[in-house]
Structures are given as structure tokens and as C-alpha cells.
């Protein structure tokens, strides 16, 4: 209990004093995870919707694979991205290892299946509702996906937020591909791991509370925006 109280106190001190290092790693955390969420949403939302409205051979197999990939171990993703982007790997010439870009790539791989899978689930229900209308109106495939994504946007925001939650709290992959370099690739989760390694539990907990607060703040911000946009009841 005492540790937790000290952690909260530490978090308060960090936040109130706007500690420069804290601001830096927080901004990087947000930058990496939001970028990864945007990219993963740009891939996962249409992909999930496409899977929901199309019939093709192996469809079940693809969906089952997608669902399984939701549980992809971040460490394995990190390792694969590491090997691919290592100087001795196939993409080594890009020099991306130990950069925020590599961290974004790893997070995109981790969260795209989550976003696509939740999207597929949501859109499938909406599609069964809209199916007759959209076929009757002689819509193209693209128009169907657009209508379903737009009308399902509230539920789909949850899909993106689930992806964001996984990304911002993820440590295994970005530790490996980012390297936790101070002032370069250190984010909240890897800083927590570092402080824990130093035995500085109060600092680690403090950063942990900042991380939780950040995740809540992003969620609240998005919900507020989407609620004021139009009547809150669909």
C-alpha cells in the first residue's frame, strides 16, 4: 500500500512540475501510439468491413487467422521486426532500427488484427441489417463499405480505441525494436521497465499512473468529441 501511495505522490510531483523528461517521453508515447493507431485503423477498418461484406473461398480461414492474430505476442512481433530491420536483415539499409518509426511499425502489426477483427464483428451485424437496402440501391462494393464504416463509426471508434489501448500499454515489442534510448526512443512503458530495473518502484509506479491517466484522457477526449458531433443516441 505504501508503495502505491508513494507512486501516486511521485506521479503528482512529476505532473505538477511538468518534468521535462516526463513531457518528452509522454509526447513520444502519444506520437508513436497515435500514429500506429491511425495507420492500423486505415488498414484495419476497411479490411474488417471488406471481410464482412464479401464472400470468397477461405474467408472463414482468414477471419479465424485474424482473430488468432489478436493474441499475437508483442515480444515475437518485436523480435521479427528487429530481425527484419537489423542492419544485417532484409530492410537493414533503411536504418530504421532503434527509431520511433520501427516502434510504430511493430505497433501497427500488433494492433491491426485487433482493429480489423472488432470491425469485422461490428460491420457484420450492421451489414445483416443493411444488406437488403444496400443491394436494392444497387451500391458498389466500395459504397457499401463506406456506408457501413460511416454508420458504424461509433462502434468502430471503440475498435480503434482498443487498438490504441494495446499500443500505448505495450512494452515487449517497442523495447526490442526501439531500444529504450534516452531522448530518442524512450516511452512511458519502457521507462517504467527501466525504473523497475533500478529498483525505483515509486518512480515506476508514478510513470504507471501517468500512463493510465493518459489512456483515460485520450478515451475521454474522443468520446466527448463524438458525442457533441451529433445526438448521442444510436
Amino acid at each position: 500500500m505504501n508503495d502505491i501511495a508513494q507512486g501516486l505522490w511521485q506521479a503528482l510531483i512529476l505532473v505538477v512540475s511538468l518534468d521535462a523528461d516526463l513531457v518528452e517521453i509522454t509526447v513520444l508515447s502519444l506520437r508513436v501510439s497515435l500514429t500506429a493507431t491511425l495507420i492500423a485503423s486505415a488498414i484495419g477498418l476497411p479490411l474488417g468491413a471488406w471481410l464482412a461484406v464479401n464472400r470468397f473461398p477461405l474467408r472463414r480461414g482468414v477471419i479465424a487467422t485474424l482473430n488468432a492474430l489478436m493474441g499475437l505476442p508483442p515480444v515475437v512481433v518485436g523480435l521479427i521486426v528487429y530481425v527484419l530491420f537489423s542492419r544485417s536483415g532484409p530492410f537493414g539499409v533503411l536504418g530504421l532500427l532503434f527509431t520511433p518509426t520501427a516502434m510504430i511499425i511493430a505497433q501497427v502489426i500488433i494492433i491491426t488484427p485487433i482493429i480489423a477483427s472488432i470491425t469485422h464483428q461490428t460491420i457484420r451485424e450492421l451489414w445483416s441489417e443493411y444488406r437488403d437496402l444496400l443491394i436494392s440501391l444497387h451500391t458498389t462494393r466500395r459504397q457499401r463499405i463506406a456506408a457501413l464504416l460511416w454508420d458504424g463509426r461509433r462502434a468502430l471508434m471503440t475498435a480503434s480505441l482498443a487498438g490504441f489501448g494495446r499500443a500505448i500499454g505495450e512494452v515487449g515489442a517497442i523495447m526490442i525494436v526501439g531500444g529504450n534510448i534516452d531522448h530518442a526512443t524512450r516511452v512511458l512503458t519502457t521507462a517504467i521497465a527501466l525504473e523497475t530495473g533500478k529498483g525505483a518502484f515509486d518512480m515506476a509506479l508514478g510513470l504507471g499512473f501517468v500512463l493510465i491517466a493518459l489512456a483515460i484522457a485520450v478515451n475521454l477526449a474522443l468520446h466527448m468529441v463524438s458525442n457533441t458531433e451529433r445526438g448521442a443516441r444510436w
Partner: peptide, 18 residues
């Protein structure tokens, strides 16, 4: 031909829109 037809269903399909 397809563009010249419309269909009204027994239970109206409501889109999540105004």
C-alpha cells in the same frame, strides 16, 4: 434497369443517420 427500380421493405431499414 437496376437504376429505375426501388424497393420498400415490410419493416423499413433504418440507417443510423438523420
Amino acid at each position: 434497369v437496376r437504376a429505375s427500380q426501388a424497393f420498400v421493405f415490410q419493416s423499413p431499414i433504418l440507417m443510423r443517420r438523420t
